[in-house]
Write a protein that binds this DNA or RNA. Sequence first.
DNA 1: CGCTAAATTGAGCCGAATCAAAAGTCGTGG
DNA 2: CCACGACTTTTGATTCGGCTCAATTTAGCG
Lengths: 242, 242
Amino acid sequence: MVTKCVNCPLARKPLFKPMSRDELAYMQRFKVGELVVDPRTSLLMEGSNSPQLYTTLRGMGLRYKTLPSGRRHVIGFVFPGDFIGLQAGVMGEMEHSVEASTSMTLCVFDRAEFWNFLKLRTDRAFDVIWLSAVEEHFLGEALATVGQRTAVEKVAWALVRFYRRGKMLHMVEHGSMPLPYKQQDLADALGLSLVHTNKTLAKLRDRQLANWSDGILSVHDVDRLAALAQDDGSEVVTRPLL
Amino acid sequence: MVTKCVNCPLARKPLFKPMSRDELAYMQRFKVGELVVDPRTSLLMEGSNSPQLYTTLRGMGLRYKTLPSGRRHVIGFVFPGDFIGLQAGVMGEMEHSVEASTSMTLCVFDRAEFWNFLKLRTDRAFDVIWLSAVEEHFLGEALATVGQRTAVEKVAWALVRFYRRGKMLHMVEHGSMPLPYKQQDLADALGLSLVHTNKTLAKLRDRQLANWSDGILSVHDVDRLAALAQDDGSEVVTRPLL
DNA sequence: CGCTAAATTGAGCCGAATCAAAAGTCGTGG
DNA sequence: CCACGACTTTTGATTCGGCTCAATTTAGCG
């Protein structure tokens, strides 16, 4: 059973800019279907040229790049509401891969149709520009993190990101949220080795700052964790949903 | 004497998508003037809210973020033709600073006017989306570099970037181009210490791979340098000019 | 129960950081 | 014209954060 845009469960989350019933109904015209994938499935491959654009409806995944040497760098983590495939849509081909970490459900939009849509609704085109700018901002933060922060700061920074994002998506209950990634994924995102990431996580656990085990992240005091992470920027901005 | 868009010296460089005389003339309507700054001048500050958008006409600069600890990370280097200020334009305020490394001349566009412009010319709005996507791509590469490459690979990677970009801008003559940055700038971009960056540059010089001294970068064999850098992607894509 | 993948833990090593100091560069003023 | 100060580049010595190697434990799962 395919979810109708009007009933989109994401639109109600605080992370997103409110959408009118009309807007949601209008989106429906471009949704050509839903894609359901199992964990560990590749959604988009580096160098591929997918004719589709997706919005994550359920589940989580990650974006990564592979170097010629075989090493992998995780560029970012995909959460519900994230828009995927814009780069391929614009640049002709993907420059990074996207893989499902959990089982995922994605809203599928037709690429060609989508461009027409943006031409008609210039306000939505601005939303896309806005999203790009936010993503750029995030990547800048990540770059500074990987480049300048120490291991503890890096891990703390990442957990704070996860937690804040989770909160805006109503995924947090009693200070805990699901975080279905492997330690290796986090290590590859922060430029740390698996072993050191593991030991750093243990350190945060010992200090009662954050506990990530069995796919559940628990944070008692986000602000204390953020302070440790040298993280000043606090609030997550509400973003448009596509 | 202000340069007229029709005579824009950048439009002829191979880096940019060809623009018709009409298009150039049209751009003129949104250019409200030129800004000339001395080296070491801050163009935009983190947290500021500039009402202007710029395109770099002459000179070079860099973008950077400062962490609460005081450490600085250089997000990227500004070359002629680069568009500056979109983030502030879209998100309300800058999340990184931009500083001039050499004396710079910038074409100034009025922000409010610019939005109207995009509404009228949807093709130009796509250009902006396209630019964002390319920038995102670059940041992804940089992230993977800082996260996964060794010191030699990092420095080689950066020099290859500079060189390729320079070539597309006709800045290279006899294998050499101006590169008016400090070693500290490169160090802060790659997440390396100044000392180690210096020693790594010396190593590349010894191996006859690249020589960057006195603000001049000389590369004998880009491909060999790129191979060392674990860099597969080769050509620089032509981009729209704003 | 054996098999495979993920998380842990310990030991030793190395790439890059830090510390320290010298040497080259350049503008400025006496 | 030279001396002075401020900055950048270079070089050497030493230290350490995080990596690699290696082995063990824990957690599903057919």
